[in-house]
Computed example of a mutant assay.
Amino acid sequence: MLKYFSLPHISAGFVSILVGYSSAAAIVFQAAAAGGASPEEIGSWMWALGIGLGLNCILLSLWFKTPIVTAWSTPGAALLVTSLPGIPMAEAIGAFLFCSALITLCGITGWFEKIMQIVPQSLASAMLGGVLLRFGLDTFIAMQSEFTLVFLMLCAYVLGKLFLPRYLIPLTFLVGILYAFGIDLMTSIPMHLSLTPPIFVFPQFNITTLIGIGIPLFMVTMASQNVPGLAVLRAHGYKTPASPLITWTGITGLVLAPFGGFAFNLAAITAAICMGHVVDPDPTKRYRAAIWAGVFYILLGLFGGTVASLFTIFPKELVMSIAGLALLGTIANSLKTAMDEEQEREAAILTFAMTASGVTLLGIGAPFWALLFGMALHFTMRRRHTA
Rank of each mutant, 00 (worst) to 15 (best):
P244T: 05
P244L: 02
P244D: 09
P244E: 08
L245A: 05
L245C: 06
I246E: 02
T247I: 09
W248C: 14
W248T: 09
W248V: 12
T249A: 06
T249R: 00
T249E: 13
T249W: 08
I251V: 11
I251E: 02
T252V: 10
T252E: 05
T252L: 03
T252C: 10
G253C: 11
G253S: 12
G253V: 06
G253E: 02
G253F: 14
V255G: 00
V255I: 14
V255N: 02
V255E: 02
V255C: 07
V255Q: 01
L256I: 12
L256V: 03
L256M: 04
A257V: 11
A257I: 04
A257Q: 10
A257R: 08
A257N: 05
P258W: 06
P258E: 06
P258M: 13
P258L: 11
F259V: 06
F259G: 00
F259C: 08
G260E: 14
G260Q: 13
G260M: 08
G260L: 14
G261H: 10
G261V: 10
G261N: 06
F262A: 07
A263D: 14
A263N: 11
F264E: 01
F264M: 09
N265C: 15
N265H: 15
L266E: 07
L266Y: 07
L266G: 01
A267D: 02
A267P: 08
A267W: 00
A268H: 06
I269P: 00
I269T: 13
I269M: 13
I269H: 04
I269A: 01
I269D: 00
T270D: 09
T270C: 08
T270P: 07
T270S: 14
A271S: 09
A271M: 13
A272T: 02
I273T: 10
I273V: 15
I273H: 01
I273E: 02
I273M: 08
I273W: 00
M275L: 13
M275E: 15
M275Q: 14
G276Y: 05
G276N: 05
G276K: 02
G276V: 01
G276C: 07
H277G: 03
H277N: 08
V278I: 05
V278Y: 05
V278S: 06
V278R: 10
V279N: 01
V279T: 07
V279K: 00
V279I: 07
V279G: 01
D280Q: 04
D280P: 00
P281T: 08
P281H: 06
P283M: 02
P283R: 04
P283F: 07
P283E: 09
T284S: 15
T284K: 14
T284G: 05
T284R: 09
K285A: 03
K285N: 04
K285W: 13
R286H: 11
R286G: 06
Y287L: 05
Y287W: 15
R288G: 03
R288E: 06
R288L: 14
R288I: 13
A289T: 04
A289I: 14
A289F: 13
A289N: 10
A290V: 11
